[in-house]
Computed example of a mutant assay.
Amino acid sequence: MPDTLRYVTGEEIFTGDRVRFHGHAAQIDFAAAEMSDPEHSCFVRLYGGGVMVNDPAGSGHTFIPVDQLKNYEDLEFVARS
């Protein structure tokens, strides 16, 4: 099981979080961290986990693997829904 998924600033990442991504309003579609989640376990198996960001004004859907989250300073937590 991967470590807890966290933003660069330390907050835990949850499905539904409102975020800013590359300066655009966006949302976390899902946070894949558990093999017991049948809908997203393939992301845990393939990448060790990660998050899917939905940025409709910019890049659309972007998957960020857990080992690259630390490089995404432009993924900023805004609010929990």
Rank of each mutant, 00 (worst) to 15 (best):
V19Y: 04
N54L: 06
P56Q: 02
F63E: 00
N71Y: 09
G50E: 02
G49C: 06
V66C: 09
I28E: 03
T62V: 15
Y72S: 03
F77D: 00
N71W: 11
S36F: 04
V8D: 02
A25G: 07
Q27C: 02
F77N: 05
P65G: 00
C42G: 13
F14Y: 13
V51G: 08
E39L: 15
V8Y: 02
P38G: 12
T9W: 03
A57Q: 13
A57D: 14
E11Y: 09
E11W: 09
M1A: 14
H22D: 11
G23N: 11
G58L: 07
S41V: 12
G60F: 04
T15H: 05
A79D: 11
Q68S: 13
Y47N: 07
R20Q: 15
R80E: 01
G50M: 06
A26M: 06
F21R: 07
L69Q: 01
R6W: 05
V51R: 12
A79S: 11
A33Q: 14
V44E: 03
E73R: 15
V44A: 04
V51C: 05
F77M: 11
P38F: 12
P56R: 09
A57H: 02
P2A: 13
R20T: 13
R18Y: 09
R80N: 02
G58Y: 02
S59K: 15
G10E: 04
A33V: 12
S59N: 07
D55H: 12
G50T: 03
M52G: 07
P65S: 07
E73H: 13
V53I: 13
T4Y: 10
Q68Y: 01
A57L: 14
D3K: 14
Y47I: 02
A31P: 06
P65Q: 07
M1C: 12
E73S: 12
D17H: 01
K70F: 00
R45G: 11
Q68A: 07
V51F: 02
D29K: 15
Y47G: 13
L46V: 04
G23W: 03
